[in-house]
Amino acid sequence: MQKTAFPLGATLRYLAIALYVLFALFPIYWLIKIAVTPDRLIYTEGTQIWPSTFTLDNFVSVLFLTDFLVYFKNSMIVSLGTAFFTTLVATAAGYAFSRFHFRGKAIIIALMLITQMFPLLMIIAPIYKIMAGLRLLDSLTGLIIVYTAFNVPFATFLMQGFFDGIPKDLEEAAMIDGCTRFTALRKVIFPLTLPGLAATLGFIFTAAWSELLFALMLINSDDKMTFPVGLKTFVSKFAVDWGQMMAAGTLALIPSCLFFILIQRFLVKGLTAGAVKG
């Protein structure tokens, strides 16, 4: 048998992997790079891979001189709220889809699929009017309600996949052992879906953290703005202070990336379980 330290195939594979990593990380790197570049060097050293001097001034001014912390807090409230309520509602619905056969199931699934199909922008105007009627315009609660509804269908299918991966025997055994269906869900099934719950929470958090257009439409006062909307105002307000914007962007990246890194393994697993079935 021939033994080479780096056979051609393996070398190419590692090269390809390295390219993917580079492509994925370079824009994020650039974001951080500009954030730590002193203002006076932004244009002169704009295209250099690393600035000659390094500064945290942009972070300091973003944190203390702008409304960044307000936006950040609002986004946290909205994203956590959305993630929590979506997961709660989707867990119940996913459980029903996974464990019951009932009349009307096909119709409900079809309706949920339709919600994934039409341009959400189509309902932006009616939602604006409805929210105005409910006096939920310019309110974080209104935003949480809307985001929760948007994310429930996908989260439901995700949770259904996780439930499908748990044998039905387990809760039947629990029901014979003395559980009601609900205690079986709480004591036996729920602990086993924790990874799935984590994945769904993280996925929805990230989605809510990113949403821009509905937030633009439904929020207009400064103290209610979520992060994307607030950042958008940086462009006009500060005559595009790039360094600050990128510093704010870097900070905004932290929660969603953290969440995502934690959950992405569960996500692949959850989808695998579902894929085996379908």
Partner: peptide, 20 residues
């Protein structure tokens, strides 16, 4: 009657042991 009220015990093919 619900399963829990029937005073029965069942051994499943898959054993259905609680993994946690």
């Amino acid at each position: 009657l619900e399963p829990r009220d029937r005073d029965i015990a069942m051994v499943f093919q898959s054993y259905a042991l609680y993994p946690h």
